[in-house]
Computed example of a mutant assay.
Amino acid sequence: MTYPQNPATPSGWVPPTPMPALAKKRKWPWIVGGLVGLMLIGCVGAVTSGGADTAEPADGSQAAMTAEGPAAVAPKKTEKAKDDTPGLNQPAADGDFQFTVTGVKCGVSRVGTSLLGQAAQGQFCLISVQVKNIGKEAQTFLDSAQKAYDAKKVEYSVDSSAAIYANGDQQILFAEINPGNTVKGKLVFDVPDGTKLTSLDLHDSPFSGGIRVSLK
């Protein structure tokens, strides 16, 4: 028995082939895999960028950058160099003479006696000193070769004429000292009132290098 054709179906029409269910299912793994891959690339880039920012450059520029920041560490203070300048009652040698300064007295207006002496232009500073010959030959001590200084490095010379009165019988002026012997006396400096002597330059001769002694 022959049935009539469906009038709503055009002649020669072929229905489309339905998409297999397996093909539909395979789309989701690719999509998910792509998203995971993008996330991994982003994480690797962030880690690499952070490591580059925190790594310390080999040339030490990181230290310079840190020093400019608010948490910069203050540089370590260097220790003050030790002062080896000898002071009172400490032997100090120059050439063949060893000097020991034993006392300082300033503010003296006159040396000698009321009948025979000398008045200061300003004030006399009397420096008590011992001079020992540590050489192998006799040598003459000259007080005129000795210099004094104040805190401003102003230089003062010995007043040899006043030293004659200040020393009395203890003469060290032009004294010839044999090897091993020691003489004692006073160096006299006429300085302005209020001046405080801070150091001496002592010499075994006018042409020696000298040795600095602190009076502080």
Rank of each mutant, 00 (worst) to 15 (best):
V32N: 06
G33W: 10
L35E: 04
L35A: 14
G37R: 02
G37E: 02
M39Y: 04
L40A: 07
I41A: 07
I41Y: 00
G42K: 00
V44W: 02
G45N: 03
V47A: 11
V47M: 11
S49V: 03
G50N: 06
G51Y: 12
A52E: 08
A52G: 03
D53R: 03
D53M: 02
D53H: 02
T54D: 04
A55E: 11
A55W: 14
E56I: 12
P57I: 02
A58Q: 13
D59V: 14
S61M: 11
Q62G: 14
A64M: 09
A64H: 06
M65R: 06
T66E: 09
A67M: 08
G69S: 14
P70N: 10
P70G: 09
P70V: 10
A71P: 01
A71H: 15
A72L: 11
A72R: 13
A74S: 12
A74W: 07
K77H: 02
K77N: 04
K77P: 02
E79N: 08
A81S: 08
K82G: 04
D83P: 13
D83S: 14
P86Y: 15
P86N: 13
P86K: 14
Q90E: 14
Q90K: 14
P91N: 13
P91C: 08
P91G: 07
A93V: 15
D94P: 09
D94G: 09
G95V: 08
D96G: 08
F97D: 07
Q98P: 03
V104L: 11
V104N: 01
K105E: 13
K105A: 10
G107W: 06
V108Y: 00
R110F: 04
R110W: 04
G112T: 08
G112R: 06
T113F: 09
S114G: 13
S114I: 03
L115Y: 08
G117W: 00
G117F: 02
A120C: 07
A120L: 08
A120N: 04
Q121V: 09
Q121I: 05
Q123F: 04
Q123K: 04
Q123P: 01
L126Y: 00
L126N: 02
V129N: 01
Q130D: 12
Q130T: 05
Q130F: 00
K132F: 03
I134V: 15
G135T: 10
K136G: 13
K136E: 14
K136D: 15
K136Y: 07
E137Q: 15
A138G: 15
